[in-house]
């Protein structure tokens, strides 16, 4: 190579590359958006909404697990709390418009998230996973014994109502675009958080916590905030899910659900923005396909198998592996 290395040229080349990359990203996002807008005309909207709700749940979880490095084994508690709160309010107070119910559900989940965070943040690593799991089990027992949840039967017939008192959400198409709008809003919010200075600190904590402490960051406060945001978004996912299905059940509070969201994030690619969305789509589809076929009783062991395989061989997940491939081949 006999080229001269003029710093200005190098900078220009880097900026050009960045621009090209940004353009590619914009194009990709545009295509995805169009697909999402058109999707309900090709597929059953309720199924798509299910995917979107779980995708939001996984995005919320990933903010904590993928970007901050905290493995919560209790996120089902927030999903269920959001769902039950919204369901209870909308079922019992007919004057409430849907968005009020959803906001209330999100707020209660947020408060619960703060309580979880303050208790669990005192323990690190593996203890953190155990504490969150045990706290979530406590919440589960509360829901099992409370009368308003309907116990084992669950809460049925939650009215979808009217958004802002105007838009009739009992129409699946309206409901779909509402869920999609909320999802995109939250996705952009998380994207913003991750790329903000605050998000950079979270990543620093994940990579090397003692170092972040020694640089003067109040690590616990950053972690608590990340936990609370994550719980809030998980609660929002649960609230919307209960409106979409008009149902809130104990399944959402069970530890199994906490495991599932870990699987979604891991399979899709933890620590990537799109990963949890891809993972949720993958897991929801697999569960649906299996439940239709002769393997319907084998869903759990197969999910367990996917878990083991992912951990052993594809730790970066689908999106992570694609990114690696692209980096290798496109430079």
């Amino acid at each position: 190579m006999s080229q001269s290395f003029n710093p200005a040229d190098v900078r220009k080349a880097i900026i050009d590359q960045q621009k090209a990359q940004d353009r590619r990203k914009m194009l990709l996002n545009g295509v995805l958006l169009l697909l999402l807008l058109a999707a309900p005309f090709a597929m059953y909207p309720v199924f798509l909404m299910k995917i979107l709700c779980f995708a939001l749940f996984a995005v919320a979880f990933n903010l904590l697990f993928g970007f901050t490095g905290l493995l919560s084994f209790g996120h089902a508690a927030f999903l269920a709390t959001g769902g039950y709160t919204t369901g209870y309010l909308l079922s019992n107070y007919s004057g409430l418009t849907t968005e009020v119910g959803i906001i209330a559900g999100t707020l209660v989940a947020t408060a619960l998230g703060l309580a979880f965070a303050l208790l669990s943040i005192r323990r690190q690593g593996i203890y953190f996973a155990m504490v969150t799991l045990a706290l979530a089990q406590l919440v589960y027992f509360f829901f099992v014994q409370s009368e308003f949840t309907g116990g084992e039967d669950g809460m049925h017939g939650i009215p979808r109502g009217h958004l802002f008192g105007l838009i009739d959400l009992s129409k699946n198409l309206n409901m779909y675009y509402f869920v999609l709008a909320v999802f995109i809003g939250c996705y952009l919010l998380v994207q913003r958080i991750v790329s903000s200075p605050y998000g950079q600190v979270l990543k620093a904590i994940k990579q090397n916590e003692p170092r972040a402490v020694s640089l003067g960051y109040n690590v616990d406060r950053y972690k608590v905030l990340a936990f609370v945001i994550s719980a809030a978004l998980a609660g929002l996912a649960g609230s919307m899910k209960s409106v979409v299905f008009q149902l809130a059940s104990l399944n959402d509070a069970h530890w199994h659900m906490s495991g599932e969201v870990i699987l979604m994030t891991l399979v899709g690619g933890m620590g990537t923005l799109l990963g949890p969305v891809v993972g949720a789509t993958f897991v929801v589809n697999i569960e649906y396909q299996l439940s239709q076929g002769p393997l319907r009783d084998w869903v759990n062991p197969i999910l367990g198998g996917i878990f083991v395989l992912t951990v052993l061989a594809f730790r970066s997940g689908i999106v992570g592996e694609i990114q690696k491939f692209l980096r290798k081949n496109l430079g």
Binding site: W298, N300, P301, G304, G305, I306, V308, V311
Partner: peptide, 8 residues
């Protein structure tokens, strides 16, 4: 994951 498999 192993627990899920065994149990399932």
């Amino acid at each position: 994951g192993v627990a899920l498999i065994i149990q399932g």
